[in-house]
Design a protein around this nucleic acid. Structure first.
Length: 381
DNA sequence: GATCCGTGGCC
DNA sequence: TGGCCAAGGAT
């Protein structure tokens, strides 16, 4: 595919892009649990930096819908950054389980600790925020703009899409990032920079969507180069992604008569770092080390319970699940989950799937039926 | 700069 | 149905 012929239209930087976006935001902003809407800001209300920070970290590469319930749960459990700092890493990992990218939870705790030591007050500049664990260029700019009213250039995936369309930027991402940033820096208004950032992201989420953008409803359509060219969906151009290799392994679900499940903790760093898991074979390669019951944590009457799968960021995984019942003490490095089941444990989704395959109903609906149906592989050779 | 890091919804 | 993508960060 080739980019459409550029069409001359009023240059976006000469239009009052920020003014139009803010007016649109006043009328069409989304109501979100962590957001202070424009009419309350106008009455002098200020966002709580803790809630802004928490929501921004949760929203990294994660959809708004997935974040909502986790955000509510976190602020109910830990209303302030000091309260969060007082929590154990273990409790934070448990509360984060299912949201993904678990290094975020570890960095969340590290960041809360640092802020708590300084009296529980977040720094209020982009640079000082950027120095905290888990806060990169995007998150620092977002907190600075939204919580502290600083004219920071907030560039996320939404903004990249809006800007590459507005200016017909055919340079592939992520190569075009610097160009996009420079443009945004020129667009940020002195007043209401936080609302401007949120307005741009809301526009990207509801109007300037990846597929089938609703250009007829867009406040910027008159100045959008891609719209004038007739193919906004062409942008942004992205580099092709490498295909995901398939890895295989086996998972062992040992069930005690009181319903407890044998677990162990994964290393702090790396894939699913710091989370719990049922014992498994290795699965760092396509066929990794010991296979089948020879890799079980102890000899027992292991019965096949099915095969589960999950697609991770850079590989796909299939695990053959084995189950046994035993009341033996936990082997070294292992522990029995709380009697009655595994609810509340820091289990990533793939591990909940494994347990669900071995003990139907064990995850008590915390693993969606749809997800279970989509990933349970019933045809076993 | 390239690679590693989850999950769920969408068409 | 599977590829795409979402308010990215760390190394």
């Amino acid at each position: 595919m080739t980019p459409p012929m550029p069409v001359r239209n009023p240059a976006p930087q000469d239009a009052d892009v920020a003014g139009r976006l803010l007016a649109w935001y006043d009328a069409h902003h989304r109501d979100l649990p962590w957001r202070v809407p424009p009419h309350e800001l106008a009455r002098g209300m200020r966002p709580d930096p803790y809630r802004v920070w928490l929501s921004e970290v949760m929203l990294q590469q994660t959809t708004v819908e997935a974040v909502k319930s986790y955000f509510r749960s976190f602020v109910r459990k830990w209303p302030t950054v000091t309260a969060l700092a007082s929590a154990s890493s273990d409790d934070i990992m448990k509360a984060w389980a299912g949201l993904g990218y678990y290094s975020r939870a570890r960095n969340l705790k590290a960041c809360a600790d640092q802020v708590a030591v300084k009296g529980g007050t977040f720094p209020d500049t982009e640079e000082s925020l950027r120095a905290l664990p888990g806060i990169g260029a995007y998150t620092a700019a977002a907190i600075a703009a939204i919580a502290f009213d600083r004219p920071a250039a907030v560039v996320d995936g939404n903004v990249e899409r809006v800007v590459t369309r507005l200016f017909s930027i055919a340079t592939p991402l992520p190569q075009a990032k610097m160009e996009v940033r420079a443009i945004v820096e020129g667009l940020v208004p002195d007043k209401r920079p936080g609302d401007f950032a949120q307005a741009t992201m809301d526009l990207g989420a509801t109007i300037c969507t990846p597929r089938r953008p609703r250009c007829m409803l867009c406040p910027l359509r008159e100045n959008c180069s891609a719209q004038a060219n007739g193919d906004p969906e062409f942008y942004p151009v992205r580099l092709a992604k490498p295909e995901k290799p398939l890895r295989r392994g086996a998972a062992f679900v040992a069930v005690r008569s009181d319903g407890a499940v044998l677990l162990r903790k994964r290393p702090e760093k790396g894939l699913l770092g710091g989370m719990s898991e049922v014992p498994t074979t290795g699965w760092t390669a396509r066929v990794d080390g010991a296979t089948g019951v020879s890799a079980a944590p102890f000899a027992a009457d292991w019965r096949r319970a099915g095969t589960i799968g999950q697609v991770f960021t850079h590989f796909s995984l299939e695990l053959e699940v084995f189950r046994t019942e035993t009341n033996a003490p936990a082997p070294a490095g292992h522990f029995w989950s709380g009697a009655g089941g595994i609810l509340g444990e820091a289990l990533p989704t793939i591990m909940k799937k494994a347990i669900e395959a071995a003990i139907p109903g064990a995850t008590n609906g915390k693993l969606g039926d749809t997800a279970t149906a989509n990933h349970l592989i019933t045809t076993i050779p």
